[in-house]
């Protein structure tokens, strides 16, 4: 249990660090928020008044702490563009994006491990090159391209969903999930191919190890060697990779949301970046960063369950 606590402590410290760095970076990037709100023609008096009202005349550290407590209590200021509290703006979109990433993640996790084991059978065989080429092809097709094809085929031709018309997540969860499912497929094709490729080469590497020879010498057949020994030993690197996949999915979701007209965090981010709506951008970045760090921590904790060697002290 000690290692888990330690890891969670590291997570909290990292989150603190990330949020501080982001806050500091945006402090430098965004310039004067009062000016951004009032425009360049505002009188100095009005600017000063607004600055005082927004608390901008307080020291940096005080403002950071104020912002951080605001982050957890839901008070993150007002969007420049939408003139709406940032949390209210982000909340529903965050739900949608997280849903999509989770659906995609589950698909990847569920199919890539068996696929990797299955593809191991072709190693050294005459058809291995077909598998390799197909794998590379899956990694090469950009999600927004498959997105265009899929939304045309399933949306326009087969009418399984209406591209651009996203159902409400709360009132019509089933339909929303269906819509997200097609987007998730586009997201997970290249990433599944990468996971399979990585996992397959891990399995190949593990098969060379001495313990495999021992297992064979005891009378295990090939399947038992794979299932009872090699699979578990290959799993830790797959878990780490899947943890990073979580981060990549967030990145990919930005584009896929655009293609499918899903009103998620990614679209909000893109819109806010082009309008320089910094309070929104800043919050989204911190949320995504937390999400990434959290995924990494969960991967580490899972790995420690799998591999007892990782439980020995040290910073994991």
């Amino acid at each position: 249990m000690k290692y888990a606590l330690k890891r969670i402590l590291t997570l909290l410290v990292t989150m603190l660090l990330v949020s501080f760095l982001t806050y500091a970076a945006f402090e430098v990037i965004s310039g004067d928020p009062a000016e951004a709100i009032l425009g360049t023609e505002a009188t100095p008096e009005r600017l000063a008044a607004l600055r005082h009202e927004m608390g901008l005349d307080r020291p940096f550290l005080t403002r950071y702490i104020g912002w951080l407590t605001g982050f957890f209590s839901g008070n993150l200021g007002i969007s420049y563009r939408y003139h709406q509290p940032v949390w209210e703006l982000i909340g529903p979109k965050l739900e949608i994006t997280l849903c999509m990433c989770l659906v995609s993640f589950i698909i990847i996790a569920v199919i890539s491990v068996p696929l990797a084991i299955w593809s191991y059978r072709f190693v050294g065989g005459p058809f291995d090159w077909i598998r390799t080429a197909f794998n590379q092809l899956c990694m090469a097709v950009p999600p927004f391209f498959t997105g265009i094809l899929i939304s045309w085929l399933f949306g326009i031709v087969l009418r399984l969903f209406v591209p651009g018309d996203f159902p409400d997540l709360h009132t019509d969860f089933g339909a929303a999930l269906g819509h997200l499912f097609f987007a998730a497929i586009c997201l997970c094709i290249p990433r599944t191919a990468m996971t399979v490729r990585m996992m397959r080469s891990t399995v190949i590497g593990e098969m060379q190890k001495a313990y495999v020879r021992t297992a064979i010498s005891r009378g295990n057949d090939r399947r038992a060697v794979l299932n009872r020994h090699v699979l578990k030993n290959s799993l830790t690197s797959a878990v780490t990779f899947l943890g990073q996949t979580m981060a990549e999915l967030i990145g990919g979701s930005v584009v896929v949301e655009q293609v499918f007209g899903i009103p998620g965090l990614g679209r909000l981010l893109v819109a806010s970046i082009s309008t320089r709506d910094y309070p929104v951008v800043q919050t989204v970045v911190v949320i995504l960063a937390f999400w990434v760090v959290l995924a990494g921590t969960v991967a580490d904790l899972v790995n420690q369950r799998i591999d007892p060697r990782l439980r020995l002290g040290g910073d994991a």
Binding site: V18, I29, G252, V255, L269, I273, R276, V281, V292
Partner: peptide, 18 residues
């Protein structure tokens, strides 16, 4: 390590926003 944890497109978007 901290930087590579971020999706590269997100970082690129941030630079573009600047």
């Amino acid at each position: 390590d901290a930087l590579t944890a971020f999706p590269s497109i997100l970082l690129a978007l941030l630079v573009i926003s600047l």
